[in-house]
Design a protein around this nucleic acid. Structure first.
Length: 556
RNA sequence: CGGGGCGUAGCGCAGUUUGGUAGCGCGCACGGUUCGGGACCGUGAAGUCGGAGGUUCAAAUCCUCUCGCCCCGACCA
């Protein structure tokens, strides 16, 4: 491809409303343009990158026996109503009516439609297993689109679905996908982690996420260097570092107007890790008191798993229910439901006295209060691994893929059943598996860039080589570049030749910004010695080679 | 949905406090000189100041409403 013929609108300055590095660089290097919040146009370079990624996805999916199909993105409401998600999912689903007022939605994922197809076509265990996939547009009315192409309202996803007769079959397809995902992300040049995750709305019981470490990430994972345990902090188990034992007797302490852990801690000169933080929340079945250690934070999602949907109590509710102002609450002497974090089980603590302006020192679990014990604190760096007791590390990550064991949630709802060897009717056992190509591209940029621009991993770069004739007015330069262009293309390389009538500096700057991994520089002076330069975008190392040896050098 | 910020030429911004002829840099067009890390000189085109309403002799500037975009949080197949 000739640069002069390709639409590559590079920008000298970054648009003001871009923050994430990948977002800034994709805009500056002419890969994407924004249409509206969460809606992006992929320009020629950007589309080439997606094409490369999709090619890897297809190869690896075919390699595990998945078959490509294509599903509509406009879905009749009935199917979503049958699985219940029409009502469960809120504003995130785009809904519309056709001219006869029939309800439709735009597909945010395709479990329903895939299962519908299976329900119509699969009859016997002999038809199983099946693995179907597509690379298809999804639409979600995101509450907050952000970070360029990392969180958008319209995006493509490689989604595959496995259909099995047995749990063993599902396990096999799940593992095959996990392995394929490892190959895919490795081939795309990403650093990534596989972590345990929360299945959330997908239902089913078991899932993993694939995460690319990056400061632009929205998720946080907890990692153990010791045993390799890794999980999304939404469900990561951890033990806060135990504090040294103290020898307190049960006594009331006067703490005038000291309400927060910080205030009381400062006032009494006692570390927050000796505090019990009591948080009143309102669940659907009534008020619940949640207890975490003073230096820990309550994790709403973990608590939800125990008590269901809930919200923090208002100040007036605290007063009404506990008879004391927030800030002086303690777990002693209440009859309401108490959920406590296990790190409070051992040792003596300080907590509110249920009396204005007083706290109590020397509170002991099971003696002074009773509670149901559940891990409800937010796992954080420095906590100890639940499995091996080594300190955990926390890392910000971009979710680039996920795999779910769905079980029979969708097949049961949509009556996707088969007859087994004994003529018994059974629901198909399903799994679903997603990867976001645009997130792979953005993650690759997040992980591979420098002050000059993008440094693409070879496998997903828009071109293999950028050929840069510096002076288009020098006939020898042009002649040499044209010959190299022909030869390299004939050898199977994707080559971008910067044939523009631009100064050398402009071409260098644009080449670095665009980030094609290898540059071949044809300069007037070096050419007089029969040489051109081959420059590595990442290391900036330059090798001078004879013109006739370029192909050999590139191949090597 | 809550909190914060920002909408002025294609991009980056100044001008708004204190109302009085709409500016700068980059980019773009043309001419010339340059030509290995975003050249220089000259000339020029380009803006409903996000939109609507109001106050005023006069509004980018003050008031009201509204739309959009970004960030933090909530939410998130």
């Amino acid at each position: 491809m000739r640069f002069s013929k390709m639409f590559i609108p590079t920008l000298r300055e970054a648009p003001a409303d871009a923050e994430a590095i990948s977002h800034i660089l994709m805009l500056r290097a002419g890969y994407v343009r924004q249409l509206a919040a969460g809606l992006y146009i992929f320009l020629p370079l950007g589309l080439r990158v997606l094409g490369k990624i999709n090619a890897v996805l297809k190869e690896e999916m075919e390699a595990i026996g998945a078959q490509e199909i294509s599903m509509p993105i406009l879905h009749p409401a009935e199917i979503w109503q049958q699985t219940g998600r029409w009502d469960i999912i809120g504003g995130e689903m785009f809904r519309l009516k056709d001219r006869t007022e029939r309800d439709f939605c735009l597909g945010m994922t395709h479990e329903e439609i895939m299962t519908w197809l299976a329900s119509r076509e699969i009859r016997s265990y002999r038809d199983l297993p099946q693995v179907w996939y597509q690379i298809q547009t999804k639409l979600r009315d995101e509450a907050r689109p952000k970070s360029g192409v990392l969180r958008t309202r319209e995006f493509t996803m490689k989604d595959s679905y496995s259909f099995d007769a047995t749990d063993e079959g599902l396990e096999k397809n799940y593992q095959l996908h996990a392995e394929a995902y490892h190959r895919i992300f490795n081939r795309c040049g990403l650093k990534f982690l596989q972590v345990e995750s929360d299945p959330g709305m997908m239902g089913g019981g078991y899932s993993h996420e694939f995460m690319a470490p990056s400061p632009a990430g929205e998720d946080v994972v907890a990692l153990c260097e010791g045993c390799g345990y890794s999980a999304n902090v939404e469900l990561a188990l951890s033990t806060p570092v135990p504090n040294a034992a103290v020898d307190w007797s049960y006594e009331e302490v006067h703490t005038p107007d000291k309400r927060t852990v910080k205030e009381v801690s400062h006032f009494l000169k006692i570390d927050p890790s000796y505090f019990i933080k009591s948080i009143l929340v309102m669940s659907e079945t009534g008020p619940v008191l949640a207890l975490v250690r003073g230096d820990q934070e309550l994790h709403e999602k973990k608590l939800s798993k125990v008590i269901g949907a809930h919200r923090p109590a208002q100040k007036t509710e605290v007063k009404e229910i506990l008879g004391v102002e927030a800030g002086f609450i303690g777990p002693m002497g209440h009859t309401l439901r108490i959920i406590a974090d296990p790190c409070l089980k051992e040792g003596l603590f300080l907590t509110g006295a249920n009396k204005q302006h007083y706290h109590i020192k020397g509170v002991k679990a099971d003696r002074d209060f009773t509670a149901a014990w559940h891990d409800i604190h937010n796992a954080k760096a420095g906590d100890l691994c639940e499995k091996c007791r080594k300190p955990l590390r926390a890392e910000k990550v971009i979710e680039i893929g996920n795999i779910f064991k769905l079980g029979t949630k969708y097949s049961s709802a949509l009556k996707a059943v088969f007859l087994d060897e004994n003529g018994q009717e059974k629901p198909i056992i399903m799994g679903s598996y997603g990867i976001g190509p645009a997130r792979i591209a953005a993650s690759a940029i997040e992980q591979n860039n420098d002050k000059d621009g993008i440094i693409w991993p070879r496998s997903i770069a828009p071109f293999d080589l950028e050929l840069i004739p510096l002076n288009m007015n020098d006939p020898k330069t042009v002649e040499t570049a044209e010959q190299l262009y022909k030869d390299l293309k004939a050898a199977g390389y994707d080559v971008l030749m910067d044939d523009r009538e631009e100064r050398a500096g402009v071409k260098f700057k644009d080449a670095d910004l665009i980030g094609i991994p290898t540059q071949i520089i044809v300069g007037e002076k070096t050419l007089k010695e029969g040489l051109v330069e081959i420059k590595d975008r990442k290391t900036k190392e330059t090798a001078r080679v004879k013109v006739e040896e370029v192909l050999e050098k590139i191949n090597g």
